[in-house]
Simulated scan of single mutants.
Amino acid sequence: MASTEVLLDRPCDGVAVITFNRPEQMNAVRPSTVSAFIDVISSVSGDIATRAVILTGAGRGFCSGMDLSARAEFPPQDVPQATEWMRELFRGAVAWSELPQPTIAAINGPAIGGGFGFALASDIRIASPQARFAATFVKIAMGPDAGLSHTLPRVVGHAKALELLLTADTVDADEALELGIVSKVSADPMAAAITLAQRFAAVPEHVSRRIKATLQRSASADLPTAISEIEVSAQAEHYCHPEFFANAGRWLNAHA
């Protein structure tokens, strides 16, 4: 039986929408949510017809991170056991970050704690005016998770990331746009995300996936390696695909 905690919808060709569906809990995640999320991701990851994936939340919130009300599911306060439990809990964030398709977060409301992490693990983020972002971990004497220690400094810089993590300050949609946390603020972030996803879906599947992979590999490489190894390898794959000469011929005819 399919879980109701994470929904999968296909609003148009080539586009999948994944929705955290625990609106009464502001879409907080618990182990069962993670399992359902991973199942949905697995179903779209290898589907070549799915060329862009959108993540959002049901109701007023995007995701409020770990469900602190589910204490019965928490592990003992033993470091090895807690480590394994948390590694399992955040497999969903890893799976989302590893999706080969371009991903878009349609942030309809608060993205708090691990929910902030899910947002920043997305390739592109579009927020509603009601969106709020906060790394509230210090309020419960915890540190960052869901990848925020990696993604937040890359987006806002080390100093601002440390400030946000130690103060737990809330960032509204306009400040998030200024900081680069989101690329757009829209009254209807889902409509904006679908419009952008449709443009991504028009790109050949092997091209969009390889461009994303090239960016990910180049992010941890020096410039000469990016040019002479990573990009060259990807371009050779593009060049040897039948669509290259077919598209090149159409482009030349259109610009003759």
Rank of each mutant, 00 (worst) to 15 (best):
S149M: 11
A119M: 09
F62W: 01
T50Q: 10
G92V: 04
A248H: 08
I48T: 13
A226Q: 11
T33V: 14
Q216W: 04
R87E: 13
F62K: 03
F133S: 00
Q101S: 11
L166D: 08
W96E: 02
V182T: 15
S42K: 13
H241Q: 07
S97H: 09
A191M: 07
I140M: 13
A197H: 00
P76M: 06
F244S: 09
H241G: 07
V207N: 01
S208F: 02
L7A: 09
Q235Y: 14
L177Q: 07
I112W: 01
L89P: 02
D47A: 13
F137K: 04
R22F: 08
A254C: 12
A197Q: 01
S45T: 08
T170F: 06
A256Y: 13
L215K: 13
F90W: 12
I48G: 06
T151L: 04
I194Q: 03
V79M: 09
V79D: 07
A58F: 09
A201T: 03
W85R: 08
I107E: 04
K139N: 15
L177F: 08
R51A: 06
G115S: 04
I112N: 03
D67M: 05
S220H: 10
R199W: 00
H206Y: 13
D169I: 03
D47L: 10
V138W: 00
R132C: 10
G157V: 08
S122K: 01
V232W: 12
S233V: 12
F245N: 10
A159Q: 12
Q198P: 00
S183N: 06
L166V: 11
P102N: 05
H238W: 15
S122D: 01
D13Y: 01
R125G: 01
T167V: 12
L55P: 01
W85V: 05
R30Y: 09
H150P: 00
P80D: 08
A226T: 12
E73C: 12
A219S: 14
Y239P: 00
N27D: 07
F200H: 03
I54T: 07
D9W: 05
V40I: 12
P31T: 11
V94T: 14
V15P: 00
